[in-house]
């Protein structure tokens, strides 16, 4: 092989099926990392909830559980559309994939908008991260989660652009599957955050 093309040869040695398997496994490993990143906050929550049950009870009443429930419905819905998108992609239905990605992204944006409403309402009532341990947890947990939603949205947007450009087919859809896994993790974390913060604080 010629010297100068060597770098390109390098990348294309990888078989798409192997790449798919490797990427998927790699993403599962990364999700493990994410779980333990949030894990520090879950552990903090567990410790302080056991220590200060009254504070958690009184403070959690100040949260807007209806908005939280709405966001839960939106996020789980977006997880479903994402999953449908993955299947569509595997079946080679690129149009349905693009539609599903669009709906997922819109759901993510609505989720973010609701969070914005929620945060501003808290600030208006002079509730800040340093108000109490409970609100420290509330802001850190939902804030870190929100950061993940943003990252997820960027990932999905890139995938949607690539899908519009026709990069995916029934035989190549690694990004869709792997990006989908990340989006589902965001949903998974929220499934725990919602009851812990809004319902049983």
């Amino acid at each position: 092989m010629e010297q100068l093309t060597a770098d390109h040869v390098h990348v294309h040695h990888i078989d798409p099926v192997e790449e798919y398997e490797q990427s998927k496994f790699g993403m599962w490993l990364f999700l493990g990392t994410e779980i333990l990143l949030f894990g520090g906050l879950f552990a903090t929550y567990a410790i302080f909830r056991a220590k200060y049950p009254e504070m958690f009870h009184l403070d959690h009443l100040k949260l807007d559980w209806e908005l939280g429930a709405l966001n839960t419905i939106i996020l789980i819905g977006s997880s479903m559309t994402m999953a449908i998108g993955v299947t569509a992609s595997k079946k080679g239905n690129n149009k349905l994939l693009i539609i599903m990605l669009a709906i997922t992204i819109i759901c993510g944006l609505v989720f973010g908008f609701n969070k914005y409403l929620e945060y501003t309402a808290k600030f208006a009532h002079h509730i800040y991260p340093d108000t109490s341990i409970f609100f420290s947890l509330y802001f850190m947990m939902t804030g870190l989660h929100m950061l993940h939603v943003f990252i997820g949205l960027i990932v999905l947007l890139i995938i949607m652009i690539l899908a519009i450009k026709g990069r995916y087919s029934a035989s190549y859809n690694t990004h869709v599957e792997v990006g989908g896994l990340y989006w589902h993790l965001i949903d998974l974390i929220w499934i725990y955050l919602f009851p812990l913060l809004y319902l049983i604080g």
Binding site: G32, T33, L37, G39
Partner: peptide, 10 residues
């Protein structure tokens, strides 16, 4: 992979 995120959040 699995210990580092905990110091990250800390």
């Amino acid at each position: 992979l699995l210990a580092t995120p905990v110091v990250g959040i800390t």
